[in-house]
Amino acid sequence: MTDKSLSRTAKIAASSGSLGLWLRAPVPTSPFHARMQQLWLQWRRLRSNASALFGLCVVVVMLLAALLAPILATHDIYEQNLAARLLAPSFQHWLGTDELGRDVYSRLLFGARITLYIALLTTVIVAPIGLIVGTTAGYLGGWVDTVLMRIVDVFLAFPNLILALAFVAALGPGIQNAIIAISLASWPPIARLARAETLTIRKSDYIAAMRLQGASSARIIFGHIVPMCIPSVVVRVTLNMAAIILTAAGLGFLGLGAQPPSPEWGTMLSSGREFVMTSWWIAAIPGTAILLTSLAFNLLGDGLRDILDPRHG
């Protein structure tokens, strides 16, 4: 440790007072205390990783924007004003107006809601399914493994976007169907990952020790193997979010995701396509938002890998 970081530690100790002392106490006094000390260490490691911190900041800003959209927005996002169409960015309209005279800045804020809604809901569906399928296949092995992994192979055989397209085409366009379609396409890689992790974990002595305690397979899988797989799955899912956002935007762009009046970024991008030569902001602004968000999730995922993966500890 350098002098600088030492003095910084001292400063933190002084400023955070008893909480800081509690977090750095040499002997944890309760399970909660021990957990919090671990989190504190991980947070300190994340803080020293500049790009991950940048990713985290962008994601937090996104979340705040989505949460506070009604307060931050300056115009009604559905109100059309043909007299004020295709206006360049100005004090009146910070990011200009689109071809129907709607305020792009306000629509961007509400679009963040839709984008995050799709990304988070997909993740919530995909991560548990992938985790359960992967760990069960990996731990039980034998025919269970064979059957589950062949199912995974079937899903992996289709390109992501094509599978989503086919599904949305069959069920009809809309955000819910887009979410289901994207989920269908993105759980298999997570199952693969969880299975690979499980194969290395199942042979370890601590799993053998649990078997010798008389633990059931379910207890071992959910109590001992899943916690070991969660870090890599979290990393994978965070990196996946970028792909999910892009797929959602792609579906929106093709007219199969969110439908026109809704301010989904891909849909905005697609409607701005005709005016790229004359009014660049209509397409460029949602495009930049998609780019920044995917980048932020990628950077955050990389950073999380560094702090969560025990092999990098």
Partner: peptide, 26 residues
């Protein structure tokens, strides 16, 4: 049973109390 390698025989993400509580729960 007690295993040979103490570095591999304890779950890396469980505190000592949890390691000991598990057999009692089972």
């Amino acid at each position: 049973m007690v295993f040979q390698d103490p570095y591999g025989s304890l779950h890396p993400r469980k505190i000592v109390e949890k390691v000991l509580a598990e057999p009692l729960a089972i």
